[in-house]
Design a protein around this nucleic acid. Structure first.
Length: 576
DNA sequence: GCCGTTTTCGGCCCGACTGTTTTCAGTCG
C-alpha cells in the first residue's frame, strides 16, 4: 500500500514550494492532497485501477496524474525536481518552531546557512551581526527553537494527555477566577495522539488569566503572552495554548479553538459565500454579530447541523451536516457490556469476581471473561483443562452475582500457521469467542492475512481483536490486508474489535470508517487487565465515533438477547 | 493546484502575538 509514501511525497513537495515562495494556494493544495492520502483507508492502487482517484476530495487532475506516474514508474518528476532545488537541511530548518520559509530563505541567500547545525553555529559565532531583522531576542528564540525541536515535538497519546490537561486546568482554577475552562483542539476531538494542548477559558480579565497561566508550576518556557492568548512549554516539553474570550463569544471561540483547522477553513468558506464572516468572536454580517454564544447557533446560521467534535476533520462531515445526514454516532450510554476482559486466570491483575463487579458498576448488563489461550504462554494462557475449570467457576459466580450476565469466553491465539488454539467442540461450549494474533508479527502480508482470514471464516469465531497489532508510537501495524479481512468479516458477520486501550486504539478511526462503509459488525471493548481499565471504554467509543459508527454498527450496544441473536446469526452467515 | 446551489476562471479563512521597526512582515494555529 503506497498511500503513506504518497502522503510524504506531497508533503515534501509542499515544503519545497513553500521555501521557494510559490503561491500559498498551490502549497495548501499539495498539503491537502497529502492529507487525503493519509486519511484514505482503501489502497490508492486499487482506486487507480477503478479510475476513482479524482473522486477523492483534494485530488484533482494534476495530483491524480502524479499519483499515477508514481505508481507506474516508482518516481515522480515534480518530487525529484523539488528535492533537487531545495536541500534537505533547509526543509529541516523550517521545522524549527518560529522559523518559517522566509527566514530560512533569507539566511540561505545571505549567509549560505543550509542546515540546523550550521544555523546553531552561526548564531553562536555572531554571523548574523548587522543583518536586518535579527536582533538579540530573535537570535535567542532561534537557539531555543533548536533545542525545543531536539527535545520536544513528539506527539503524546490521548490517555497521557487527558490527565495532564486536567491537572493544568485544576491548577489554573486555584490561581485565578475563570468562568469556563475546558480542553479544546485535538483533545476535544479525541484524536489518538495530541501535538499540543489547547485550553479555552472565559472570564472578564483576560490579561490576568493569561498571566496566571504563564506562571503555573508546570511551565518551563513562555512562548507568547498577550491579552487573550498565552502559549507555554511544559516541563515535559509539551506546548500548551490558552485562549481567553468573553462569555458572549464562548460558542464561536470553542468552535474555532476545537478545529480541526481544515474543518474551520471549510466553515469560513461557507460563511463567505453567504456574505458572512466567522471568527473566534462570532458570526458577523458586516460589523454586526449575529451568532456566537453557543456552537449550535454558529453551525445553524451557516445552514448546518451541529457537528460533534469527534467528526470535525474535514472528512465529509460538512456536506453531511448541510444535508442533515450526519450519523447518529454511538454513545457511551449505548454500551451494554464489555466483551474483552482478562482476569488473574491469565495475565489480568484481578479475580473474575472483581472484574465482574467493576463491570456491573459501569452499569453493564453483561461482561465476557476473555483470558488468553495456551499458546500465549507469556500470559499464562489457559489449556482446555483450565478453561473448563474456569467455566465451572463462572457458573458458581452466576449464582452469586446478579444483575449482570457473565459470558464464558476466550481471547484465543491465532497461531502462525493459521490454526486455532482450541478445537471446535471446545469453542462451541463458549458464549462468545474472540481470536487474535500474538506471535509471528513479521510474517509476510499474504501469510499473515491468510491466517486471520482463516480465523474469521471459522463459524465459532465471533470477534477478531486488535486486528493490526499496532502500539501507537511504539510498534507499527502488522503488514496485513485490512481491506480483505473486513470484506470477509462483512460476509461472515464476524465482528471486528475497536480496542479501547489508548496505546492500541485498534482498529483506528480511518479503518473503522471503512468498516462501517462495508457493513462490518463492530464491538468496542477495553481489553481490561484490571478493574480501572474498564474506564478506557471512552477512548474506544471516541475512536468508533471518529469512524462514524452508529449504535447499530456496534454489537455490544445490544441487549443480552440481541447479542445472542447476533452470535447465532454470525454462525449461520459463515456457513453459507 | 483545487473547485463550482452566483463561478470552468478567478477566487481561495482569519486573527493574535512577536520582534524590530517607525508601520509591518513573519509565524502560528
Amino acid at each position: 500500500m503506497k498511500n503513506r509514501e504518497l502522503a510524504m511525497i506531497f508533503e515534501k513537495i509542499a515544503d519545497c514550494l513553500e521555501f521557494k515562495g510559490e503561491s500559498q494556494f498551490r502549497i495548501i493544495a499539495y498539503r491537502r492532497a497529502a492529507r487525503a492520502m493519509q486519511d484514505l483507508a482503501e489502497d490508492v492502487e486499487e482506486l487507480l485501477k477503478q479510475n476513482k482517484l479524482k473522486d477523492i476530495a483534494g485530488i484533482g487532475a494534476a495530483t491524480a496524474e502524479k499519483i499515477e506516474e508514481y505508481l507506474a514508474t516508482g518516481t515522480m518528476q515534480r518530487y525529484e525536481e523539488a528535492r533537487k532545488a531545495v536541500p534537505d537541511g533547509l526543509v529541516e530548518m523550517m521545522r524549527i518552531p518560529g522559523m518559517g520559509p522566509k527566514t530560512v530563505k533569507l539566511l540561505y541567500d545571505k549567509l549560505k546557512i543550509n542546515s540546523v547545525a550550521d544555523l546553531e553555529a552561526a548564531v553562536k559565532e555572531g554571523r548574523m551581526k548587522g543583518l536586518r531583522g535579527f536582533g538579540p531576542k530573535k537570535l535567542e528564540n532561534i537557539l531555543r527553537g533548536i533545542s525545543l525541536m531536539k527535545t520536544a515535538g513528539k506527539r503524546i497519546r490521548l490517555g497521557v494527555a487527558l490527565p495532564l490537561v486536567e491537572s493544568i486546568i485544576d491548577a489554573l482554577r486555584t490561581k485565578v477566577p475563570v468562568a469556563q475552562c475546558l480542553p479544546a483542539g485535538s483533545l476535544r476531538r479525541m484524536r489518538e495522539t495530541i501535538g499540543d494542548i489547547d485550553i479555552l477559558a472565559t472570564g472578564v480579565n483576560g490579561p490576568e488569566i493569561v498571566n496566571a497561566f504563564t506562571k503555573l508550576p508546570q511551565v518551563r518556557y513562555v512562548l507568547a503572552e498577550g491579552d487573550t492568548k498565552g502559549s507555554v512549554i511544559t516541563g515535559e516539553g509539551l506546548q500548551v495554548d490558552l485562549r481567553v474570550v468573553a462569555e458572549e463569544s464562548y460558542g464561536a471561540a470553542l468552535q474555532y479553538f476545537t478545529g480541526s483547522k481544515d474543518h474551520n477553513i471549510r466553515l469560513r468558506e461557507i460563511a463567505r459565500k453567504k456574505h458572512l464572516k466567522v471568527n473566534e468572536y462570532g458570526v458577523f454580517r458586516g460589523e454586526k454579530s449575529i451568532a456566537g454564544k453557543t456552537e449550535e447557533e454558529v453551525y445553524k446560521i451557516l445552514g448546518l447541523d451541529w457537528v460533534p467534535p469527534v467528526l470535525r476533520e474535514d472528512r465529509g462531515e460538512i456536506d453531511a451536516a448541510r444535508e442533515g445526514r450526519l450519523p447518529a454516532i454511538v454513545e457511551q450510554s449505548d454500551i451494554q457490556g464489555d466483551l474483552h476482559v482478562h482476569s488473574k486466570w491469565s495475565d489480568g491483575k484481578a479475580t473474575i469476581e472483581r472484574m465482574v463487579l467493576a463491570a456491573k458498576e459501569m452499569g453493564y448488563k453483561y461482561v465476557a471473561i476473555t483470558d488468553h489461550s495456551y499458546s500465549t504462554t507469556i500470559a499464562k494462557g489457559l489449556t482446555v483443562e483450565r478453561l473448563h475449570k474456569q467455566i465451572e467457576e463462572i457458573e458458581k459466580l452466576r449464582k452469586k452475582i446478579h444483575g449482570i450476565e457473565i459470558l464464558t469466553s476466550t481471547e484465543m491465539d491465532i497461531k502462525p500457521d493459521g490454526s486455532l488454539d482450541f478445537p471446535d467442540d471446545v469453542l462451541e461450549e463458549l458464549d462468545v469467542v474472540t481470536a487474535s494474533v500474538h506471535s509471528a508479527f513479521k510474517q509476510d502480508r499474504s501469510r499473515l492475512t491468510a491466517r486471520v482470514l482463516a480465523a474469521a471464516e471459522n463459524p465459532n469465531v465471533d470477534i477478531i481483536a486488535h486486528l493490526t497489532g499496532r502500539l501507537i508510537g511504539e510498534r507499527e501495524p502488522y503488514d496485513i490486508d485490512v481491506e480483505a479481512v473486513m470484506k470477509k468479516a462483512a460476509d461472515t458477520g464476524t465482528a471486528i474489535e475497536v480496542n479501547a486501550q489508548w496505546e492500541r486504539l485498534d482498529i483506528d478511526d480511518v479503518n473503522c470508517r471503512r468498516a462501517v462503509d462495508l457493513g462490518v459488525n463492530l464491538v468496542i471493548s477495553t481489553d481490561s487487565h484490571n478493574p480501572s481499565h474498564l474506564q478506557y471504554m471512552r477512548f474506544g467509543i471516541a475512536t468508533a465515533q471518529r469512524g462514524w459508527a452508529a449504535k447499530e454498527n456496534v454489537m455490544n450496544t445490544r441487549s443480552i438477547s440481541g447479542l445472542r441473536e447476533w452470535l447465532s446469526r454470525a454462525h449461520v452467515g459463515a456457513a453459507r
